[in-house]
Each structure stands twice: as structure tokens, then as C-alpha cells.
């Protein structure tokens, strides 16, 4: 069973639908027993870092997620879930879970593309991946594959070893993070068509050694 963590951070049904469509059993839950007995964890989320951290603490899920990481349980962070595993977010000046060293930063408001045109915030739509590292969850990725992003903040890991891919939006930011049993995407695999479903499927079968 895969536990999709419910911490009042947006509508999680799309993640549940995609995982079920792929034929894996999953449950949207904030029940500590259920999460503890799950085989793997998906940590999604849409919304603001401050409210999300408040909910995690209130539900007692902050320490549970940290423990799951220590125990070696496979975990997939998505969007806000990816930001929350960092040390600290500039959004609402929020101390986060400190699983990965580094801050979550806001895109600069005067951000420009290489040709000098103004870029809009949030970064919303389809974008590609660069500097992709080898990882079991990223098998069957094609060079031109793109993923669906919606975010105004991005994770910035201190250790470049933790960065599995970068994406260009005026600046180059970490679009995927990997560390031991954790993989985390700034984009939404559940909304990214074939390559997104492929990544989700790989995660659902991944056994980190």
C-alpha cells in the first residue's frame, strides 16, 4: 500500500487517480498508523509553505516523515512536498523539515529569459529537464520529455550531489532532488502525461538499496 499524505495542502485526488490508474494500491491519509504500515510514501501538496508546516505539526506528521526517511522507506515529494523537505522556505519565512540541506527561494520578480523578455511568475506550464543524473526512477525518460510545473518558489539544495535535474526558467533551478530513499520533483508527474506516469510507475516499484 502506498500512503499519499493528506495534510490539508490542496486537492490530492489527482495523485491518487494517477497511481490507481497505474494499477497500484494507494490511500490518501493522515492516519499515523496507516502511514507507518505503508510500503512507500507520496508527499504531495499545493499551497503555501507556512500553512503546510503548521498542518504537518498539528497532525504530528513532521516527525513521522523524518522517521520514515531514516527508516529507508521510499518517499516521493511533489511540488510543495519537495520544498517542505528542505531546511527553510522564503515563503512565509518558514522553517521546514530539514531533511535536505538548503533553502527554498522565490523566483526574482524581474526575471528575464535569455532573449531579454520578461518572464511571468509563477512558472506555469511545460518545461524540460537538463543535467539529468542516472536514477532508477528516471529510466525510460526521453531527452525531449517535458513536465508540468506550477510554482513561484524553488528548492536550492546546498549539495549539488542531491540535484537530479535542473530546469531553466531565467535561472537554472533544481527540478528534481534525490537522496538515499527520497526522490522529489518540483513538477507534477501526475499532470505530466506519459513521462510523468512513467516516473510515478518507476517510483511505485523502486526498492532503494
Amino acid at each position: 500500500m502506498i500512503a499519499i499524505i493528506d495534510y490539508d495542502a490542496g486537492n490530492l485526488a489527482s495523485v491518487e487517480r494517477a497511481v490507481s490508474y497505474l494499477g497500484f494500491k494507494c490511500i490518501v491519509t493522515n492516519n499515523i498508523k496507516t502511514i507507518n504500515s505503508s510500503e512507500r510514501i507520496i508527499f504531495p501538496g499545493v499551497g503555501a509553505a507556512g500553512a503546510a508546516m503548521d498542518s504537518l505539526k498539528r497532525l504530528g506528521l513532521d516527525s513521522l516523515i523524518k522517521q520514515a526517511v531514516i527508516d529507508g522507506k521510499p518517499m516521493l515529494g511533489i511540488c510543495l512536498g519537495t520544498q517542505i523537505i528542505m531546511e527553510y522556505s522564503e515563503e512565509n519565512e518558514t522553517p521546514c523539515l530539514k531533511i535536505i540541506d538548503g533553502f527554498v527561494k522565490a523566483f526574482p520578480s524581474d526575471i528575464k529569459s535569455k532573449d531579454g523578455s520578461r518572464l511571468k511568475i509563477p512558472h506555469m506550464g511545460w518545461n524540460g529537464l537538463e543535467n539529468i543524473k542516472k536514477h532508477p526512477v528516471l529510466s525510460n525518460l526521453h531527452e525531449e520529455d517535458e513536465f508540468y510545473f506550477v510554482h513561484g518558489y524553488y528548492p536550492n539544495p546546498n549539495d549539488s550531489e542531491h540535484i537530479l535535474s535542473t530546469t531553466d526558467y531565467g535561472i537554472s533551478f533544481a527540478s528534481m532532488i534525490g537522496f538515499n530513499n527520497i526522490i522529489a520533483t518540483q513538477f507534477h508527474p501526475e499532470k505530466s502525461g506519459r513521462p510523468g506516469l512513467s516516473l510515478l510507475k518507476n517510483f511505485c516499484m523502486w526498492n532503494p538499496s
Binding site: 529569459s113 511545460w126 518545461n127 524540460g128 526558467y169
Partner: peptide, 8 residues
């Protein structure tokens, strides 16, 4: 870079 979206 971000792609332009085509939306039926």
C-alpha cells in the same frame, strides 16, 4: 525554457 501551450 517554458513551452508555449496549445489548448484545444
Amino acid at each position: 525554457m517554458l513551452s508555449k501551450r496549445i489548448i484545444p
